[in-house]
Write a protein that binds this DNA or RNA. Structure first.
Lengths: 347, 347
DNA sequence: CTGAAAGCGCTTACAG
DNA sequence: CTGAAAGCGCTTACAG
């Protein structure tokens, strides 16, 4: 015999009230069909007994688990907290729970993570894919958050526009030579950001790009970026493609006696938790995680509700690019003619 | 009539093979009772059909959802990624899924988050409580990760010992005056860390404590901490109670022309993602998240498996304190007699 | 070794 | 407005 549940079930409420389970079910689900008087009595009694509906029973009957999955390339990514929070919030508002899965490791691990979620009966999932991974359709609707330029992407921050805003900001401050500091040229996100920055440069401005991973392959992990030297070469602005790289740049410059923003400006991306806390506060560009999560969730649920067959559909959203917002703090400032090495050469 | 499932079920496999569902079930669950020959045939056929067992059916029958909940005070906490990753990993190894819930907001929100998880049928949950919150037992086993000094705690890093190690490290470097930089004196974790640091001071060493939230209430959020002034007063080491505060201290010192570690040492707690990346790399104390997660999960599952009645039990672990590990990087160094303000006064 | 049957808790057409 | 009944997919004691 199957094990008894701990709490009360519909049947217990029904017999204790001398009505049928069907009526209790109808009363509690508020589908009408029950006299308001009886419905109230049933609701009261259920509350009194501390009735908690069994998701298992409901799921089995309706075929809907009320749960979606969230697959992340690496949960320890500093961007994850905000994303997970936004997704959980949006999902909850829609009555869904969120099951997490870490696809740490290679593409195989990602596929495995997806399968685990399917086995757990998720109705759909949201995936932040590993770099350069295509999602081979799972057996449920899938929403992808990556970059608008990724094929099959559902929704993303407009990284390109974010980069553009950074460039415009630096141009307005009078910077002419920008060093873009990225991590890995294989990243779709970082490439979009670079493209955006370059697109926003005005005539007379020049940029170079430094890829940290490449440098570290030569010089060893955790090596100096040599930014003080870059300042001497005439660079006045360091536009990092993530706040993590920006932080690395900022502290290296400070350590080497380059004051920020007097002698050089530093900007980042993502507005991570410590960005407002460092001195000087980091100028950065923030994603609108709440909107991204809302769009991902609502598109996903729309697809779930229409696709009767639970197939591996890649979800599309109506709006696939969510604007990023420039946040100006103290790490970026006007080029100071008395301090700038470039200006000194010219004069 | 209930909706048909998309994929094959036991019944489909059974009829297609001309055997009973019971036999298919037994064969796939590997409980023996089926001839190896038939079992293999069934397994092959199931795989061929892409059979995925229904968690809903299984859960309804067995009363076990195979899911635990993870309740966090604030998902956007920078500590969360590592914790969630470790919990997910340990849970997965035990065959469980992890449902997340953010108790952002007040104690009521935390209670609500707990209820949501119960409604979703979790078999137990792991809670990182809000500051100074006692968990009013939910209707399932609960493991709490906070500090060993919190009543009802299941497992925690040994924050006290971590603080002690920091103090010993600074003592060995010759520091005499330590400024402890904390966020909030109400935090159990931070208090344990402070206690540990003080316990590790040697005769002749003195410490003061700066609470950032208090300072900000006076001077406004994001105000300077005035650390350069502290250096002039003779402090040579700044022991922050979190890497976030340490980063704030480090950058403020650098901005004000205090070189680290030559003129002052800075240490943190937690080994957050950027700690090895800043210049100079941050000396800190790391929690062993994997071990903490393992202990939390295994204690929780043990309780789940024994407590037949699904009551609100507070889980206890055999080991409730997991050692923290000192990670020495460049931000802490020997007191330099030629640079130290204190030394200058003395000589 | 294999199968028929009960039952976990729910919802929904259908009948009254 | 209310109830009896079927059935979602599974597992397990029991019978053969």
């Amino acid at each position: 015999m199957p094990p008894a549940r701990s709490g009360p079930n519909l049947s217990r409420i029904a017999s204790s009230l001398g009505v049928s389970v069907a009526t209790v079910s109808n009363a509690l689900s508020g589908k009408g069909r029950v006299s308001e008087q009886l419905a109230e009595k049933i609701r009261d009694h259920a509350a009194e007994l501390g009735y908690v509906p069994s998701q298992a029973g409901r799921a089995l009957r309706t075929g809907r688990s009320g749960v979606i999955g969230l697959v992340l390339p690496d949960i320890s990514n500093p961007l994850f907290p905000k994303l997970a929070q936004a997704i959980e919030f949006a999902a909850r508002a829609a009555g869904y729970g969120v099951l997490i899965a870490d696809s740490r490791g290679d593409v195989a691990a990602q596929t495995e993570a997806i399968n685990r979620l399917v086995e757990r009966g998720v109705e759909g999932m949201i995936i932040v894919p590993r770099r350069a991974t295509r999602i081979s359709a799972a057996s449920c609707p899938v929403a992808v958050i990556d970059t608008a330029s990724t094929p099959g992407n559902t929704v993303a921050a407009d990284h390109w526009q974010g980069g553009h805003d950074i460039a415009v900001h630096l141009a307005e401050l009078g910077h002419k030579r920008i060093l873009i500091i990225g991590n890995n040229p294989e990243s779709n996100v970082q490439n979009d950001r670079v493209g955006g920055i370059r697109s926003g440069l005005r005539p007379g401005m020049k940029s170079s790009t430094l890829w940290i991973e490449r440098l570290e392959q030569e010089k060893g992990s955790g090596c100096a970026l040599g930014l003080a030297e870059k300042v001497r070469e005439g660079f006045t602005a360091f536009a990092a493609l993530s706040d993590l790289s920006a932080l690395r740049a900022l502290t290296e410059l400070q350590r080497d006696g380059i004051t920020v923003p007097d002698m050089a400006s530093v900007t980042g991306f993502d507005d991570l938790i410590w960005s407002p806390v460092v001195t000087p506060g980091l100028t950065t560009v923030a994603m609108d995680m709440a909107t991204i999560a809302d769009i991902a969730i609502s598109s996903l649920l729309k697809t779930i509700q229409t696709s009767g067959s639970r197939e591996g559909v890649l979800v599309r959203a109506e709006t696939d690019r969510v604007p990023m917002q420039l946040i100006v703090r103290q790490s970026s400032g006007l080029v100071d003619p008395t301090q700038s090495a470039l200006q000194m050469e010219i004069s």
